[in-house]
Design a protein around this nucleic acid. Structure first.
Lengths: 206, 206
DNA sequence: GGGCCATATGAATATCCGGTCATATGAATC
DNA sequence: GATTCATATGACCGGATATTCATATGGCCC
């Protein structure tokens, strides 16, 4: 947790520090990110940094928590509250779509999130929780879909929940491959959903 | 390329260096991996390290190439040579299965491979076209499967090839979460193949 | 003005690491 | 035993970085 000194800062200055940190962590891994660069870009003295945060990790965790919170906010709240009124695949589509909206809004946050998601080994304690949360969410969603008869009962829910988490991240990687985002992105999501829904097998062979 | 001095080493000593390197690169990212730690663990002087390799990157590439080669060897060669005689899903199953056999044999090699595959951004300057190769392979496989009428023609081959690559890696991550899943590893592969083949949708709704 | 307190500062410190180099070793050859 | 050559060694250098600390600043209350 950042120190009181940080929270007491004028909003504008606080924001400068947060912005500088996001820039640095988006460009470099946690270990390679430099406190000096963050302080410089924020226009504060290096010493001040340590008046605000215990250490580098303190800031990193703060930023990660902020990203997680922000990402959650991109999911259509109305849909989340009336989840019963939607089909499994509608909800899945909205989840993947919200990931894309989030990435479009601030690619830096996505870059940080992807690092965390894809390289857990490097961030032992820090990332596991968020992954776990995602599994839990998908598990609940899959169970509901199964109860409603929407899903094939032969599916293993544990495996499917992990698969859907990974596929969600894959979609973001796919979309970011060319470096730019455009309206075709939703088409990619729909292609992915199509595969997850119907499988690869030709209809003739079913 | 390592220097001649390295290749002239007695096998036992060579192996000690390789083992130490694998341990270090499995635990830390390329940038965080320490030449000193590798030399120490291998029981050689730091100076000797530079008699064997140009620099850290030289050793890293050597290890990566070794892993790629080893991984390829885990794929059933007979199946690869007679690929025409097998269905798409048979080949897919064997590919995923070989990944698992490889990971079981030496988890350290998998850890290094996963790092590379999932986060090339961390290795600025060291571009390794590992992933691209996998896409290409899956693309060719998908095209063949589509020509044979095994696959749904509505599938986007580019997207599917990336998805299959990612899902392959997901399966490895899945089997590494021991204790959470009470099935044996090949059963996990079969569950994943089932989903990729048939999709999540219930048969009643098709 | 003077005392108090939170905050700001950046030079200094401590640590770590990749890579170099002068020197040592030891085996083979004559 | 002298010479040569490949190999081994670890102290050392240069650079980078996180963190500390003594000092300075500036607002606030009396």
């Amino acid at each position: 947790m950042p120190k009181d000194t940080f929270f007491n800062l004028p909003d504008e200055k606080k924001q400068r520090v947060i912005d500088a940190a996001i820039d640095e962590f988006a460009e470099r891994s946690y270990h390679d990110a430099r406190v000096t660069a963050i302080a410089d870009q924020a226009g504060i003295a290096k010493g001040s940094f340590y008046q605000y945060f215990e250490d580098k990790e303190d800031l990193f965790r703060y930023i990660i928590d902020m990203i997680a919170e922000k990402k959650l906010a991109y999911i259509d709240q109305d849909l989340l509250e009336n989840i019963e009124a939607h089909t499994f695949f509608e909800v899945l589509r909205e989840l993947y779509a919200s990931g894309i909206r989030f990435a479009q809004e601030d690619p830096r946050l996505m870059a940080i999130g992807m690092q965390l998601a894809s390289n857990q080994a490097l961030y032992y304690g820090i990332s596991i929780d968020y992954m776990e949360q995602s599994y839990e969410f998908f598990r609940a969603l899959l169970e509901k879909g199964m109860d409603a008869g929407e899903l094939d009962p032969a599916i293993d829910i544990n495996i499917a929940s992990r698969l859907l988490t990974m596929v969600g991240y894959s979609s973001l990687e796919l979309i970011f491959e060319d470096g730019k985002l455009d309206q075709d992105d939703m088409a990619i999501v729909d292609d992915i959903i199509y595969i997850m829904k119907n499988g690869l097998k030709s209809k003739a062979e079913r």
